[in-house]
């Protein structure tokens, strides 16, 4: 352990922090889907991670169809064209995930609204199994290469710390997406309806809010964010596989709870914390202890703040 510690010091704390924050903002983006759905119908949507996986598979298929899996083409194409293609991939994945999430809600979760929570959770696990099996049929068991479109060149002059276009891209997509979501929930009529439904569905219904529509919109938004996250993840990590929904979904769920379930800024903070802890523990304790460390810290935090990091301060859900 001390040996690893020394190695890590040599490579630099700052570097791990950068990677951790980038990973964290990805977790946060996925976590938003969890936390919004939870805020409204109190469902832990275990299928969300696997929805994310299917979104990534769709993006691979879409980008391959645009010809981007051919490195020669990707290298020669002008940057603006690439940007458009990637944007197209993001849009396609977001639409696909939103549609799939809404469909899952319509078919599976909606009939269970009045049932106890466990019933809906088990259904979500069932949906997750179906998604994983679909992913397996779709792309097979081996990892699938995601086109490497964004250069790894260091933007900083320094020799030690590296900040690449990829890092910038992740934050550049996730931060505006989260900001847009916050603004949407805060200022649009639909966002207001969401907050109202989260606070009290019955009262919201009495006030003329179409609760079913609001829930569908929430699933659509959460799904779309998962789709966006899937493409950004693919561009950053550069390979996707049918099992990636598990770890990412688990971390995102953890992020949502850590921040205080149902709380949007909480999910973001939770995601960042988990990303940083995950990467730092890989560096200082060895990669094999990373998951155990993340969950140990989670438990400690929850012991002292039982409603999550931001849960106690903000009462309001969504």
């Amino acid at each position: 352990m001390p040996e690893l510690f020394a190695q890590a010091e040599a490579a630099g704390f700052g570097q791990f922090l950068v990677t951790g924050l980038v990973m964290g903002s990805l977790y946060a983006l996925i976590a938003l889907g969890y936390t919004m759905v939870y805020g409204i119908i109190e469902l832990i949507n275990f299928a969300h991670g696997d929805l994310f996986m299917l979104g990534a598979f769709l993006a691979v298929t879409h980008l391959a169809w645009s010809g981007l899996t051919d490195p020669a083409f990707a290298a020669s194409a002008p940057a603006y064209l690439l940007a458009w293609m990637v944007a197209g991939g993001i849009a396609a994945a977001a639409l696909f995930c939103a549609a799939l999430n809404v469909a899952a809600d319509r078919v599976v979760y909606r009939p269970l609204r009045a049932s106890p929570k466990l019933t809906a959770i088990v259904s979500a696990v069932g949906v997750s199994f179906v998604f994983v099996n679909l992913g397996l049929f779709w792309k097979g068991p081996s990892p699938v290469k995601f086109p490497d479109l964004i250069p790894d060149t260091n933007l900083l002059a320094s020799d030690g710390l590296r900040l690449t276009w990829k890092d910038v891209m992740v934050v550049g997509v996730t931060a505006p997406a989260m900001l847009a979501l916050t603004l949407f929930v805060r200022y649009t009529p639909l966002g207001k309806a969401m907050r109202a439904t989260a606070q009290n569905p019955t009262a919201a219904r009495l006030m003329g809010v179409d609760v079913d529509r609001v829930v569908s919109a929430t699933f659509a938004l959460g799904g779309a964010l998962a789709g966006v996250a899937a493409v950004v993840y693919g561009l950053y990590i550069k390979a996707v596989d049918f099992q990636m929904g598990f770890q990412n979904g688990l971390y995102a769920f953890t992020a949502a709870v850590l921040g205080g379930v149902g709380n949007i800024p909480g999910a973001v903070v939770g995601g960042l914390v988990i990303g940083v802890v995950g990467e730092l523990s890989k560096a200082y304790l060895g990669a094999k202890w990373s998951e155990a460390t993340v969950f140990a810290i989670l438990i400690v935090i929850l012991v002292f703040r039982p409603a999550g990091l931001l849960g106690a301060r903000t009462r309001e859900k969504v």
């Binding site: 690893l4 190695q7 990677t19 950053y236 990590i237 560096a283 990669a287």
Partner: peptide
């Protein structure tokens, strides 16, 4: 998901 930190070390 990734081993960037491990490889950087």
């Amino acid at each position: 998901q990734n081993f960037k930190t491990v490889i950087a070390t």
